[in-house]
């Protein structure tokens, strides 16, 4: 076939430069975290794990990691359970009203966090939920729902609605139909949604500035303070820990998909 539609050499070189620019920040963080210096820099003479030791023996960093993990897990459970059911209900009914519900569910990824932050800050002051696990988990859970609704809706698009009708027709209750027919079929979508929701909470850095202050100090919050106050190499270790958690999640997702398609 005639390949003259292919990008010319100039376009290719430019495209790959842009791709390298995209990778640059991720690739410098790992060597920096292994520096033998006391300040942020590439290793001068040797690689050193001293800053990893510092991170994993620091009570502050460890408690932040732990808090982030607890909040991310709990808010993921909240987002996945409510988001999945909502997507299924909207898919089955498919009326004008459920279309509006779907748009409403997408609000958190359209509205900038800073705008929502003001509103929820005000509400949490009134309900006395500032700086509490309940408050943060609710906020991260609600803002995680869109990711679940999107992935589950996509999974449902490939699900034959006659299977549901057949199950119901043969006398299965709604609960049985959900548990045995619908949920197993859309599991990959649910898993992807869960991973998105987890990473959303794990990385969230704007809302937390407003709704937590002393008792709760998640990993992004501690990094935020660190960047503004003192840039020490332990921060690079924290950044690596955050990246590794995301990459681990991505690997789980890929593994789950592969297993599914086997």
């Amino acid at each position: 076939m005639d390949r003259s539609a292919q990008a010319g050499p100039v376009a290719n070189v430019l495209a790959w430069s842009v791709l390298l620019f995209l990778l640059l920040p991720i690739t410098v963080i790992f060597p920096i975290s292994l520096t033998d210096q006391r300040f942020l820099s590439l290793p001068y003479e040797a690689l050193s794990l001293q800053h990893y030791v510092a991170f994993f023996t620091s009570e502050r960093w460890l408690s932040s990691t732990w808090q982030s993990l607890v909040i991310a897990l709990a808010s993921t459970i909240l987002a996945v359970s409510t988001g999945t059911l909502c997507a299924i209900g909207c898919w089955k009914l498919s009326t004008r009203a459920t279309e509006i519900v779907r748009v409403l569910m997408l609000l958190p990824i359209i509205v900038p966090s800073i705008v929502y932050a003001l509103g929820i800050y005000r509400l949490w002051i009134r309900l006395d939920l500032l700086d509490t696990y309940t408050g943060v988990i609710l906020v991260h859970g609600v803002t995680g729902i869109p990711y679940v609704v999107i992935t589950v809706t996509t999974a449902l698009a490939n699900f034959d609605p006659r299977l549901e009708q057949a199950a119901r027709g043969m006398g299965a209750s709604l609960r049985q139909t959900l548990a045995w027919v619908i949920l197993p079929r859309i599991m990959p979508g649910i898993v992807s949604g869960a991973i998105f929701a987890f990473i959303h909470s794990w990385d969230e850095a704007v809302l937390i500035l407003f709704i937590a202050s002393r008792a709760l100090f998640t990993l992004p919050r501690r990094m935020w303070d660190g960047i503004n106050e003192n840039l020490d190499p332990v921060m690079a270790v924290a950044a690596c820990v955050m990246i590794l958690a995301s990459v681990l999640m991505l690997a789980v997702d890929l593994w789950a998909r592969r297993k599914r398609s086997e």
Partner: peptide
């Protein structure tokens, strides 16, 4: 109705803890 009950938890959360505070802004 049963399907609306599936939608309800997410809808209530989203209205109470997202749409309402946003409207308040």
């Amino acid at each position: 109705l049963p399907w609306w009950l599936l939608i309800a938890p997410a809808l209530i959360l989203m209205l109470a803890f997202y749409a309402f505070p946003l409207a308040e802004v």
